[in-house]
Design a protein around this nucleic acid. Structure first.
Lengths: 348, 348
DNA sequence: CTGAAAGCGCTTACAG
DNA sequence: CTGAAAGCGCTTACAG
């Protein structure tokens, strides 16, 4: 009935050694798959482990080796499918690396983020992949980055020299805006996102650049900030639609904002794509699945995650600091929400 | 330039002790906030920690105390918002418990699940919250459950005596079905989910029970299995719509399946709610956000997660085995996809 | 391949 | 409050 857990005395390599009639050292060699041990001995030891229900104590090993096999992934919003896909990509890349990823969700709280990071360091994390929460302090990142390998993902923070994996926000937003302009739109708004985020600034810059190139006005009143969530997008779009002159198209901060915006448009009795064109950013699985399907900028969250993981592994293994940056391609994926279809039907 | 990480010699309590002019024991007492240490000493020690950049080594502490402060959460599909919400609820409940949750995603692979569980045990997890992957072996759970505190969440597995947090699948599905029957539907199908999952069996049983109570036929050909994903739901619905006689309503295995099904219906040129009524199960945030809004069975993933966490904490703290079960209420939330609205408009 | 010894950083009694 | 000692379970040389 009693559990054999950490409570009662655990089975150790010494027990295994006795049971298999070898020394502690030999068991340790078996554990690390050393070729020094002959097959027959190896099997005897493995048999003893099975029989006694041995569980390797990584804590003890880490303590001795002064290095643990975990890496932390700190995610700012796990309920956003984009970050869930990112996390899954990171996990995939870590699969056979000898490191296990531990995920934590900060829910955009810097306080929570500090706790989580501290906890991961206390557990001996060999490195961190960090998607910084809103309003993360530059100094905090710099301090961290001096102490352990770290890769910043998705959200750039100005003033740090940490390794970085982001997507090409400027080009992506520009491309999305150009597409709307090509479709004939002149009155285009930017919806969602928080002004003090660098990602927001980059995307707005891409948007404004494309507008200016086409000699179109960028009115400050037509850039509506919001939390980068579905509800945020819904509210922002509602506000935008309540203005006296409504835009014919909107570039949204990201997909969840765009989906929220689409709902606000529908709620208003308008048709997405015909009355108001919508484009998103991220290309999460949801973008394909909503109706009308969302035209968006694809950044491939999964492969960004893989990149970040590989970058972190290099940094951990090479010991000394080696900073890299990767800017993932941002590719426009035209579906229905931009109304390209409606235009075509009218033209023909 | 050099990192102070685990590579070079780490700062230990001995360094702190020297720097603060106290003994190692005193530092340890400060660490655990013992009232034995007077405030002035405490501050001196805390100051030294700050100055030297001390990081508590939990691995060493766990080793000595033979007990770690982590609990594992093993999730079968983190890309399903339902499980993401569950995970967030678990995290919330663990916030001030002294335990930190480590999440891992098995992506429905039992092989991956075994690896992940082993890794968590090796790291000394004090307990596990497990959402079993498809086809998880009963024997494996039983073995595990004899060795450490464990709470099974969401997916019941027949034959184990482990603690359990699930929702009332039978009643929920019955309620959803009854609602469709009240709306006048006679020809109702069940869409999505994998037949060998107990959750599926429970929900189908609820569905069939309600049908039989209304003396309606349950045709096996009208129970279409699929992976419990959006794509699965899409495919299943497509198959269902290709039958000669199409049902007027469908009860879906869960929300992601329902949303996939809604897309298949729309793709077919039909209108959800008017041509085919749809109800889901879970009430994820997405259910509110799709259009038409999904009528579904609310089970409150977040609070199920909290329950599971509390149950696990009790089990860990009380030392000996104490099995509990919690069956969360399943409440029908009527929105638009069931067509209640259309019916009303016709009636008036 | 094996055995003995030391040590990773902490906590736990225990005596003062 | 403090100090000295032992020990958690492992790995790491090192000598055989």
């Amino acid at each position: 009935m009693a559990r054999e857990g950490r409570k009662s005395r655990a089975v150790t390599i010494l027990d295994i050694a006795k049971s298999a009639g070898v020394s502690k050292s030999t068991v340790s060699l078996v554990l690390k798959r050393s070729p020094l041990v002959k097959e027959e001995t190896r099997q005897r030891v493995a048999g003893a482990m099975d029989a006694l229900g041995y569980v390797y104590n990584r804590g003890a090993a880490s303590l001795r080796r002064a290095r643990a096999d975990i890496v932390g992934m700190v995610i700012n919003d796990l309920s956003n499918p984009f970050f869930a896909e990112l996390a899954i990509g990171i996990e995939r890349a870590l699969q056979n690396s000898g490191f296990v990823p531990f995920i934590a969700n900060t829910a955009e709280s810097v306080v929570r983020q500090a706790e989580v990071v501290r906890s991961m360091r206390e557990h001996g994390a060999a490195g961190l992949i960090l998607c910084p929460a809103l309003d993360t302090d530059v100094a905090e990142i710099s301090r961290l980055e001096a102490r352990l390998p770290i890769v910043l993902a998705i959200r750039r923070i100005i003033g740090t020299r940490a390794s970085l994996v982001v997507s090409d926000n400027l080009a992506g937003a520009a491309r999305a805006t150009e597409h709307l302009i090509e479709l004939g739109h002149r009155d285009i708004a930017f919806v969602g996102g928080v002004g003090r985020m660098v990602v927001f600034q980059d995307r707005v810059a891409g948007f404004a650049g494309a507008m200016e190139k086409a000699r179109l006005a960028v009115e400050p009143a037509r850039t509506i900030e919001s939390m980068p969530t579905k509800d945020g997008g819904f509210d922002a779009m509602k506000r935008l639609l309540s203005l006296d002159r409504r835009p014919t198209a909107v570039v949204c901060f990201n997909d969840v904002v765009a989906i929220g915006a689409m709902l606000a448009i529908a709620r208003q009795g308008l048709t997405v794509g015909r009355d108001v064109a919508v484009v998103g950013f991220d290309d999460t699985a949801e973008a394909r699945h909503v109706s009308p399907a969302l035209t968006t900028v694809s950044v491939d969250a999964g492969s960004l995650g893989e990149r970040a993981a590989q970058m972190l592994l290099r940094q951990i293994n090479e010991g000394e600091r080696r900073l890299e940056s990767y800017v993932g391609e941002a590719r426009l994926v035209v579906r229905e929400s931009c109304g390209a279809d409606f235009k075509r039907r009218i033209a023909s």
